[in-house]
Design a protein around this nucleic acid. Structure first.
Lengths: 237, 237
DNA sequence: TGTATAAGGTTGTATATACAGTATAGTGCG
DNA sequence: CGCACTATACTGTATATACAACCTTATACA
């Protein structure tokens, strides 16, 4: 049984995703949600407060709660599923798998995965699309000891990130960001016509002390920015 | 008057910072906080819930609330002084101030600083050099209400970051990373001869609920990469 | 016309209370 | 000794209520 506040959150998120509620629109007030869902105001308050903390809504005391501008940003801190992000913007997600097989680790990959000797690895190359437009090229290697059934998954249904996160909780992350000029191969995959700089995000993910996966994600700069925000826990004033 | 739940949050954060509460240690239960602060359990619950959402605590139903492993935050996460970084590499740091004055906030800057109306702002443009070679171009705006004496500082002695950090602790950060092609102005300042992509890091810093400073830092890609690694604190087994 | 006031709606905070779910420690029984 | 049960502590969720702060709009008044 999902909690009431979560049901209200889903309901509002669905409306944002479906386009019923667009950026700037006013969402129902707490009291309106009370009568609409037959819940208490504190429950409605929790739903709206959490959606605000998640960055979907903005609240103005004395005025109302509004849908925030959808910023095509991806979080550096959290691991987010790109399919969900695109859906949250009310857009259509699709993907094109360009490679999916077992390979032998190169010396660099052995180092990446902290292996002591040569080992097989799973590899996937996949292009993520938003409304048919490529927005991310994912080049990922996976530890076969951590996810032995990786190759058998249907990645048209579920992204590699979603599958791996459901299988193994990520307890440590490493990110490395660079600005690059895409090579001919990457340009073709991302359907870049005029040459533009891209963000290259290299991410390693640990679970239980082992490197589970190592991925290079390439974003065309004009279509994506990486975003992170957090509380440092420093003394408030 | 700061709200009660915020006071409780500060109290617990203080104990974590001071070392009274270390990683893995148990924090007072909701009921213990009730008697300790003479508040209701819902208020204690809010404080602990928000500290959990901020990543400082982990809660286990039926057991208790615990301090999470300190996240090893680097470069992208931590605020570092570039002069210190360069000195740590045994190289010579120098800087060239290109602008330092009061300006009027543009609409975009008003939004950045969460102002309600037009306001003056301080601006500094400074090129940081390592062994005489430009390695970062810093374009920074500063809230005059937070740092009224900013313009009077000697930034040949102390970087703007160092001055602001000493004056006001950063309790919240926002980063936005993009890959850009530098314009002619930026190329000249960074002494880039052949055109190469750059990392653009936009950072906003909060202190006491106010945006203290908003800075755009530009790194020539071939000379810098941004790195972060941290523990997500997923399920403490 | 301009200004002060009042009313009503909205969010923000705080309390008291209740019940459910989960983990642990202890107790008693076979 | 081992196992089932129970009591207890803790978090998670939900409700009803209250008051404060804030904003907008309508109204009354000078």
């Amino acid at each position: 049984m999902t909690p009431l506040y979560a049901q209200v959150k889903s309901h509002i998120l669905d409306q944002i995703r479906s386009g019923t509620l667009t950026a700037g629109k006013r969402v129902p007030s707490e009291n309106e949600l009370v009568t609409q869902f037959n819940i208490s105001r504190m429950t409605a308050n929790r739903a709206l407060k959490e959606l605000t903390a998640d960055g979907f809504l903005a609240r103005v005391p004395g005025v109302g709660t509004f849908v925030r501008e959808a910023t095509p940003r991806t979080s550096l801190i959290e691991l987010r599923n790109i399919a969900d992000e695109i859906a949250a913007r009310g857009h259509r997600y699709s993907s094109r798998i360009e490679d999916l097989r077992e390979i032998n680790a190169t010396p660099n990959l052995i180092k990446d995965f902290e292996f002591k000797s040569a080992s097989p690895l799973f590899h996937i190359a996949i292009v993520h699309e938003e409304n048919g437009m490529p927005v991310q090229f994912e080049d990922r290697y996976v530890n076969p000891f951590s996810a032995p059934n990786f190759l058998k998954q249907n990645f048209a249904e579920q992204t590699p990130t979603a599958y791996l996160l459901a299988l193994l909780p990520a307890d440590e992350l490493e990110h490395n960001v660079e600005a690059i000029m895409p090579d001919a191969n990457q340009q073709r995959r991302l359907k870049i016509t005029n040459v533009e700089p891209c963000l290259s995000l290299h991410r390693r993910t640990w679970s239980g002390g082992h490197v589970v996966t190592s991925a290079t994600l390439i974003y065309p700069a004009s279509r994506y920015a990486l975003y992170s925000r957090y509380n440092t826990g420093a003394k408030p004033q």
